[in-house]
Nucleic acid binder design. Structure first.
Length: 134
RNA sequence: CAGGCAAGCUGUCUUAUCGCACCAGUUUAGGUUGGUGAGGAAAGUCCGGGCAACACAGGGCACCACGCUUCCUAACGGGAAGGGUUCUGAUAGCUAAUAUUGGAAUACAGAAAGUGCAACAGAAAAUAUACCGCCUUAACAAUAUAUCGUUUCGGUAAGGGUGAAAAGGUAGUGGUAAGAGCCUACCGGCCUUGGUGUGAAUCAAGGCGCAUGGUAAACCUCGUGGGUUGAAAGAUCAAAUAGGUCACGUUAUCUUGAUGAAUAAUCAAGAUCAAUUUGCCCGAUUGUUUUCUUGUGAAAAACGUGAUGGGUAGAUCGUUAGACUCUGAUGGCAAACUUCAGGGCUAGAUAAAUGAUAAGAAUGCUGACAUUUGUCAGUUUACAGAACCCGGCUUAUAGGCUUGCAUUUUUU
């Protein structure tokens, strides 16, 4: 259990630190090119297994298109809500054998309530074949 | 008193749970403790500046921007104070011209350098014009002895009518056939001189009857300013101002003069040519050295330019405290100014932190109960998110506060 300490702390603490974010431009390109996808309005999920996994942490990317929300304030609000939902519901994707790159894209054109967004996003995340089956 | 419009100021708070970024401390290097964390516009990217790289002897043309004056400023297309013009209210005046005073607007250099443009209406629209009307010459007819009607040679811009605009305005038993700046007075305009003011201008006197309409946010002319790009700038580090490899460029010709035996060679001057620089032109600057070859030329060195470079779209710096802000004094009519004194202020991310959820308070609004006012329920809290940094401008903005403006109703 000594080796899996970062893995456990990430799960227990409901954190969402820099290590859990996907910020590498090339990897993002590959994810959008090769990744599998899953859609439930208003969310589009793209995911693919990380090949050179080291930490065991999933890397998440949250995207809200500028096309749908012109104002930076609105985009920030949606992003922050999605981030919050993921953070508080990490048990849907952990524990996992394989670390994944995951992109959560908000394709809706309206801002939904927090509760509505929460229910929908949980449904989508449950469908993903990431979590280890007990 | 109420609602409306405009301008300025302000731009909700507390707690709990779970989190994010940076900084500092501590650490057994897993963590942990503490601190800090969006705006008046952070927006639009419209001006100006700092900063950086590249380019650059200098001049002209083109292009772009600006355009009353003085002051402020790092600078500005920004601000302050002032002047002119136009519109408008009040008062005076003859219901006039105009004067005084308050308010609003102002892209406010030049229309006497040139070119262009003006629908419709109207007789005529920039070398003015004669439709009606007015006056006059002649002819004819009528009544009747100076009038009227028709035609006609002319005169006339006072009156009518058209227009956004009709070639200064008003008055005159001045003048005339009728009229007309034709003449006179007052007002307006232009020119000259003088006074006042830093200046835009203004005041006074004298002269000119005043033959020169509008439009420059039409071309244009004049004046002033502008090198280009933009933090994805750029610098440093990783063997790193290095070394290697590759490509390209480095050009001359003629004339004259001096030294010289010489048509060799060297030096100087000029012309042509090429290269460099630029949106274009003038101009300016540069055209290296050695060896080989009969020669075209070839080779080498040196210099310059570009490419290549094992690596993650590397890391760090640039990068967050200054043309900052508040208070007081000082100079100033005033300014978002000057000078002085004291205090205050540390966001710094980079697929991009500054949050999410819940509860409560506060503010306003609505409804009910109750009517000095309170209670309950519901609802509202805008515009909007830093991306190198400043000074402005523009646009957006719930509610609250202040000021100004006009309007309506009620009461007295």
């Amino acid at each position: 259990m000594e080796n899996s300490k970062p893995y456990n702390s990430a799960l227990i603490d409901n954190t969402f630190s820099k290590d859990e974010r996907l910020s590498h431009k090339r990897l993002i390109g590959e994810l959008f090119k090769n990744g599998s996808s899953s859609f439930l309005h208003p969310f589009l999920i793209k995911y693919e297994p990380e090949l050179s996994a080291q930490s065991g942490l999933h890397k998440i990317l949250i995207s809200v298109p500028k096309r749908n929300f012109k104002k930076a304030v609105d985009r920030n609000l949606v992003k922050r809500r999605i981030k919050e939902i993921y953070r508080t519901n990490k048990s849907l994707v952990y524990p996992a054998d394989q670390a994944y790159h995951i992109a959560i894209i908000y394709t809706g054109k309206e801002i939904h309530d927090f509760k509505v967004m929460k229910n929908k996003l949980i449904k989508v995340l449950k469908r993903l074949p990431i979590r280890e089956q007990d």
